[in-house]
Amino acid sequence: MNITVNGQSRVIDVGDAPTVARVIDALGLRGKRVAVECNGAIVSRSRYDDTVVKEDDRLEVVGAVGGG
């Protein structure tokens, strides 16, 4: 499936479960503390498993970094 993650087009293998959880896994981010937006709406961690991702969806995956 083609989706955009953090502004970059990516092909993600979602198998038979096109969920945010599957995308997070495929990106190697399982267990990392991140926050996710799908098409501008925040997807809370508790809903990763039942939030469906569709072709051409736009995801933002963010984390905390050093800043003032």
Partner: peptide
């Protein structure tokens, strides 16, 4: 401590 919120480096 303050932190910034930025896109995660994937890969």
């Amino acid at each position: 401590v303050t932190v910034a919120i930025r896109r995660t480096n994937i890969g």
